[in-house]
Amino acid sequence: MSLNQTRSEDTVDTNTEREAPAAQAAVPVLQARNIKKVYGKGSEAKTAVEDVSFEVAKGEFVCIVGPSGGGKTTLLRILSGLMPATEGEALFEGAAVRSVPDRVSIVFQDYSRSLFPWLRVNKNVELPLRVKKVPRVERAKRAQEVIEAVGLAGSERRYPWQLSGGMQQRVAIARALAHRPDLLLMDEPFASVDAQTRFELEDMILRVRDEFDVTVVLITHDIDEAVYLADRIVVLSTSPSTVRELVTVPLTNPREQAATRNDPEFASLRTRLLGLVTR
């Protein structure tokens, strides 16, 4: 794809979004339709995802939980357009996903590998804007907004590797939000940080999601995390993945670490999910 094409498409996207929000509200932001993924061929073939279907409405926070090694990452790679499905398809705002759509961002689990160590924090965050040829001053201003939103103010001129793990993942989240995507896909984003930091990051992502009005799909193997964050939970089976159940989380917003986790509703939902996942 040439640069010009990318740019013109982007302009068109933004315009339609601004002019007709009502028309788009009915179309789910993300749809998974009978997604199946088989690695290899013949006798070597291994099915990672058997049959997964679900929808995500605009503004929803959906968590996908499932056991470790259960094809969750494979599913996210298909949903994002990083990898084609063997059967079925993913649709973003009604259109089949072939490459990563402009309005979709991904946060990977391994922040130390997804960030560019040769760029300072602000330059890492500016990257999506730089690629879209946003003028320098505008770029810096918009990057600064997301940097502040994720709680990184003061660390702009540092390098990612000078920061703690939690701070590095904040940089990755800021980078994903810099061009104001409609959908944020997160692959076990808080799995490699300590518990205290994880609570902070969970609250940060809930805040940021409100502030930037972004739809979030987050993959995790941590049931507590899924219950705490999600409006709805997609429970996957062991590999090869199928959807075991779609669970709506009845907890009130905004969530608050101590109070929400003490809610009897939280405990009963947690027990139910534990049963589903380990069945």
Binding site: S2, S105, S114, V131
Partner: peptide, 15 residues
């Protein structure tokens, strides 16, 4: 993963 990031940003070959 850095190449995945490049894919996510829809970089041209030169970029």
């Amino acid at each position: 993963i850095k190449l995945d990031v490049a894919k996510t940003l829809n970089l041209s070959v030169l970029q």
